[in-house]
Write a protein that binds this DNA or RNA. Sequence first.
DNA 1: GAGAGACTACTCGGATACAGTCTGTCCGAGTAAATCCGG
DNA 2: CCGGATTTACTCGGACAGACTGTATCCGAGTAGTCTCTC
Lengths: 162, 162
Amino acid sequence: MVLKSQVEWALHCCAILAGLPEGRYLSTKALAELHGLPKEYLSKALQSLSQAGLVHSTLGPSGGYRLAKQPEELTFLDIVEAVEGTSRTFVCANIRANNPCRPKGHCDSSPCAIARIMWEADEVWRQKLRDVALSDLVKRLSRETPRALWKDTFEWVLNRAG
Amino acid sequence: MVLKSQVEWALHCCAILAGLPEGRYLSTKALAELHGLPKEYLSKALQSLSQAGLVHSTLGPSGGYRLAKQPEELTFLDIVEAVEGTSRTFVCANIRANNPCRPKGHCDSSPCAIARIMWEADEVWRQKLRDVALSDLVKRLSRETPRALWKDTFEWVLNRAG
DNA sequence: GAGAGACTACTCGGATACAGTCTGTCCGAGTAAATCCGG
DNA sequence: CCGGATTTACTCGGACAGACTGTATCCGAGTAGTCTCTC
């Protein structure tokens, strides 16, 4: 059970988009080159973000993507769920219903205890991701990235931004 | 990103095995019939538990599986990791290294901030699963399952146990 | 110089392969119980 | 009747296919800005 690589890509792209000046757009091509990723496939991840309403897109030359909200209002969970889907990581097939000792017509009043425990764990995972805003990520990255590289990168981005 | 169905099966099987008297074994066939599962495939889940050292197996007639430890010493995480593997749910491809602005020979001192955040979330998920022992599950199940069904089930199991 | 039409660059979506994993099945190796045979 | 060797029945464990999802690529349709050509 591993998250798709698109999750990582989407997070990196959002971090870049968060540093984009208001009103500017950055194309899939630029994002793909910046991260060394296949453009066509990366576009699928960005489409997911777009469909989830996290980013806004514009067509035509100098088109591309920008964030649809402020970085403070976007959480890790928003991005992860946009790509990975919102369904829980544990699905309960309710196999207890197959117990041959079970009286016919017996109906379970509540979900299986196993499922509830697994869902609780799933929920703390999601909560942890909800607690981190995109702005927090940008702060961390700017602190940990060498000053020169950070500056060069955003110069590069601005040259490519429409 | 969804856990395999074998995880659910393994948890249910361990709950049954936890109710088995000391020294008795229960076969894959019995566990499969009890849960309405394909015997051959369920055996793969049990093999995983066996390889992880969570259960002990015996061959021959009246052979099968029993827990290798006390239910208090087995956690949800043990069982989940035995089936699903211990690797993290987020893998970092370190795509920041592909940044064309990066000076040659630059070496990252620490893992990417994105990976660290994702790994923290992964860790709280695991911790939540670590906090629940198999004995806790059995307690919950015995409380929530109708008395008669609970009794009949273990009678059925004891008749099949070698 | 201004406006209309053609052109270009980009996004978006669908169609199409390829690979890896999950699901499911089969058969062989090995063992414990049961049986058989000799004493 | 008893004990040991043999047979048998049953188990686990690994090897072997099919289905599904994730990964990756390509191409066409639609759009907005740009360019060109005409008046």
